[in-house]
Design a protein around this nucleic acid. Sequence first.
RNA 1: GGAGGCGUAGCUCAGUUGGUUAGAGCGCUACCUUGACAUGGUAGAGGUCGGAGGUUCGAGCCCUCUCGCGUCCACCA
Length: 871
Amino acid sequence: MEMQKTYNPKDFEDRIYADWEQSGYFRAEVDKNKVPFTIMMPPPNITGQLHMGHAMDATMQDTLIRFKRMQGYSALWLPGCDHASIATEVKIVEKMKAEGVTKADIGRDGFLVRAWDWKEQYGNRIMLQQRRLGTSCDWSRQAFTLDEKCSKAVREVFVNLYEKGLIYQGNRIINWCPCCKTALSDAEVEYAEEAGHFWHLRYPATDGSAEVVVATTRPETMLGDTAVAVHPDDERYQTLVGKTLKLPLTDREIPVVADAYVDPTFGTGCVKITPAHDPNDFEVGKRHDLPVIRVMNDDGTMNELAGKYQGMDRYVARKQMVADLEAQGNLVKIEGHTHNVGHCYRCHSTVEPIVSKQWFVKMEPLAKPAIQAVMKNKVKFVPERFSKIYYNWMENVRDWCISRQLWWGHRIPVWYCKDCGKVICTKEDPTHCPDCGSANIHQDEDVLDTWFSSALWPFSTLGYPDMTEDYKYFYPTDVLVTGYDIIFFWVARMIFSGIEHTGKVPFHDVLIHGIVRDELGRKMSKSLGNGIDPLEVIEKYGADSLRLSLLKGIAPGNDTRYADVKVESCRNFINKLWNAARFVLMNTEGKKIPSIEEVKFAPADKWIISKLQNCIRETTTNLTKYELGVAADLVTDFVWDDFCDWYIELSKPALYGEDEKKKTDTLAVLCFVLENALKLLHPFIPFVTEEIYANLPNTKGSIMMTDFPRYNSKMAYKREAKAFEGVMEIIKAVRAMKKDADCPPSKKVELNIVTESKRLIQTNKDCIMKLSGASALNLVDGAVEGKTVSSVTEIAQIYVPLGELVDIEKEKARLTAEIERINSEIERAQGKLNNPSFVNKAPAKLVEAEKEKVKKYEDMKAKCVAQLESL
RNA sequence: GGAGGCGUAGCUCAGUUGGUUAGAGCGCUACCUUGACAUGGUAGAGGUCGGAGGUUCGAGCCCUCUCGCGUCCACCA
């Protein structure tokens, strides 16, 4: 097959993916002869579209899983989607609103029909988009948090926790979203600074003897006040404690209580206590046995206990009440005040702390072993610093509110007996009350927090609670790859869930990455409209270029910026690789290539093979350490600098020469190095490496199923490679000399070389001449007469007669400068050696290196001085 | 209030247990269409690593202080 002059990913990416998928290569088998390696894909929401964050997340995972697969592991990357209870429900309600339909109109069953329709329509979209990236997930095991398998695990886990007393129902202050009309967990509230006010209100004592002034940021909640608190030691208010106050705008009387919660130095030292609408007040209320008066409805309007304000929206009521208080003379003052206001993470409405009966998971017993697991390195965060963030959260976590007043999700598996009040929580749906036998039972209306099922993802997807072959073989998983933004939502909850329900940590490593920002460093967001669609980038540059650009130069845990120019430079790299392959293929065409074992290596061959071995070793190490950015740099640098810029050029004298054996030997090395480079690159840029691999002589099958290159110490050739670098130095020196003398590169020059390494130079004569643009290479014994420019390298002095181009004065200045430079090097090294503490304390190896350096530079200096004198 | 991060070449970023002369991409300068590639080649210019002090034979890396900019958590009504 003919390769085009320019790399064009559109010609093959879709075709190759279809081939892979059809071949079954993505499927992981339970194979006792292999070691499993498992990654669970963080399930994207079914409402979602692929964005840059997904693209990076998926690319990292795909790179790791392809690497491990090639290393011989039974590599499972299990994909799937999250039903995203609240996010999806919000979207469906929005869509219904456009049609003029409400949830009440169609009822629960009708709503669920729509929700499943939605899932059918959009649930697979993002999975299809992921394929464009080249993701090698095992689609045969694709899961969904609301499917039968995952639901079974949810049920099992809920009942177990309930039976252990770790799930309970309680009346507590929770975060309420009046827009979504559901409770939220603490993690689902986002705080943002907002400009607001402090309203100072006067509450007179009922006996007229005194008054207190309280300040509030939410005056509408005063209708639910059931006390005013002061600090027990606050001398100002000693006489007030025990008295009652008249609550303005109502006909209620409320007591003054003493509670240490109050900070006497803040404000007036008097705090209105609203147990139904503030978490701290709720606690104070409990201590003083205060009534809990909730004055707000679920939709954020005032309720029947709000008197004349009933039915008003919370903000309308606020305005009206402030006006009324002012009219009464009970508004003392209004202060400007910025404070943190909580918002729903889905609809961004201001959340309302409200007392409500909800289901909770008791966190303390679960958190302890989860903290231990990380402390004892059973779970390792990469980079390590994220474990601190994890500890900080885990150590201070409050009970998890898991019930949601939504319909889309796992319904809480609890039934209530209407006759005897029994609460029934069982793994099988009950038909009657086990206590009184009544069939008059009904299920709890609420569903579970969407993260309750995500928390089980690493094992629910493998069949838990059933001890399936998959579960036994692939669990615990190996590495979780995700962003730091969901450590609390998800990572932490998977860790304690895994430990509690399976007795094992769900994964050994957590590779944390940052977020992909826009070119200006801003977060990509819908409201800013600065999002970049990965699919458009793929369309323009190809998936491989996008993948590589998302990996090159990234460091674990750090944010990165997306820039077109980065993708472009990666595309350029791939084009380079493409053309290098084209070069090799053009030359191998119709030739019989010997196997690498039969080749007699030239010095350049040993050099590139040595470089290759080094690259194999370093790349493997870094991929194993999850340093994907470093690994990507290593491989691409090897291909571009060592292979393309040097070795391919070095191969040309042999390829265009007369010696057939030399020619085919060189071709064998070219093929060998290219093939290995393709394998090293395959985890990063799977499509183009597959395409080129298919064109290589003597290859069959897919590159993704070949073995990842292994470091071969027999091919290390360290000494030979080092020696050959002396040859390269000469080539570079000649190029620089020509440039310096304004000699056109195309003009062939004569090289006269003084060296002790005569054999090395002689063996590589063709390469030196070809790469430096020389017409002749003479080994001479001393300085050459006449107008020459000269240069000194570690192993040689080079004289190039350039006739009229030679400027003696310029040449003298150059040599003088060179001697100065060498002198400063000698000084630096000698300075170290003259320092007794360096010589005594530094490792012998380093001391030796400094000595060598002095020797080398002294030698070069002598040569430079000799040259200068000869001018 | 607490925790953590960042500050390295004009720009965007690497720099893994402290160890030769601190790297890359893009940009820039000069030259080059040399039988894979101008999405290219060759040769260059350009940082002393935010600042100060300290530990060490040796610090971009460790410690203290300090300046500037993000982030997360908590939250006093």
